[in-house]
Structures are given as C-alpha cells and as structure tokens.
Amino acid sequence: MHKSSIIDIISPIMAGPSSSHTAGAVRLGLLAKNVYNTVPHKITFKLYNSYARTGLGHGTDKGLLAGILGFSVDDERIKTVFETPEAKSLNYEFEFLEDFNRHPNAVDFVFEGELNMKISGNSVGAGEIELTKINDFQTKLDGKYNTVFTVYKDVPGVISKVTGLIQEDNVNIASLHCDRSAKGRDASMCICIDGDLSKNCLNVLTNFSDMYVVRYIKKLES
C-alpha cells in the first residue's frame, strides 16, 4: 500500500486542533460527499464514542459538515462553517451516540433524498480515514486511490466485464474488494486503481446492464 513519504510527515496544513478529530473529520466528509455525489434533502451525522464525547471541543461536527460542503482541511471557513451560506442552505442534524462495537472515532452519514444512502467511516489516526460501509456493503475506501464503487445485480460475469473494461482503458487495478447482500441479489465492488479512468470508460460502465449504482470517487489530496 501507500508508503510513507516526507510529505506525510511535514503536512497536512490544516485547521486545528486534532488530525484525527478535525482534519480526519473533514476528509471523511469529503469522501462521503464524493460517494453520495448528489445534493441530499437532509443529512444526519451520527458521531460515536470519542467522536461523540470530545467532538464538539475538537470541531469534529464542523469538520464533518465542512467536508460534506467540499471544503478542504485547511479551509479558513471550517471554524465558522455553520454561518456559511453553503451550510445554511443544507438541512442537517447531529446525533451523539455510544456503541462499544464501533471504532473510537466512528461516524455514520445518513443521506436522505432522491437516493437514500448510509455511509459509515472511521478516523484511524494522523488524519488517515476509512469508509467501511456503504448501505449494507462492506467497503475499503481510504481516499488514497481513485476508486470505482458499483452496486450491481449478483449474476455471473459482472466482475470480469468491469475489470476487462478497466484493462481496455489501460489502467492498473491496485485492489479489488467485493461483497453481496445475498446470492443473486445486490452485490458491490470497490476497485482502487492507479492513474485515472477516461470519461468514455465511465460512460460505458454506467450503461452496463445490471448496474444499479456507479460512482467514480477521486482520491483525496493528502
């Protein structure tokens, strides 16, 4: 996986006070926004454990919202995000919960709108994050790779069709992670790639039969 670089040690430039509770929260929001990819009617942020207990003192709530609005980790507006016009035009609420089965810094984004979606993630330390679940599907999204996420009908040949298409685009697959709800029902694929997919490739992919959801999630800036 991603090797640590001097750049990781002397960055990021970020709004304080905590890499896990502030910068990590922004990055979780940014990645969740890219996955949902459309404007929701409402978002509920569910903060768990340490995120719930110390989140307000660390601006975790502000960070999560700022990420959803597309602000970067060093955006001066994070501190006053609730007062921004972007936030005022959004319907959102926060819940503070405890669940010992979840990571200390866990969050759920519950999107309601034309598409309902629940995205779960953790802030795992030093600003690093992971999205672990999209609806009922296990995922492995850490924002370090451009990633194709799809939900499709669990029938033979879909994985081969999708990976074949990516190969035709001359792009290398770094990792592939699949999950399904039940045999023959909905399944999901999370494909991390090196480089970038062409628009054409994404168009073809989106129009495949048996595809319910196709998202191209760009990697986050480090």
Binding site: I9, A15, S18, T22
Partner: peptide, 15 residues
C-alpha cells in the same frame, strides 16, 4: 493557534 481551530501544520501531528 491550533486549539482555536486556526491553520497550522501537523508536523508530525496537530498536537
């Protein structure tokens, strides 16, 4: 600056 949510460099961490 860090604790008032100002802009800092995590080097190596924010704390």
């Amino acid at each position: 600056q860090n604790l008032r949510m100002g802009k800092i460099v995590a080097c190596p961490t924010a704390g």
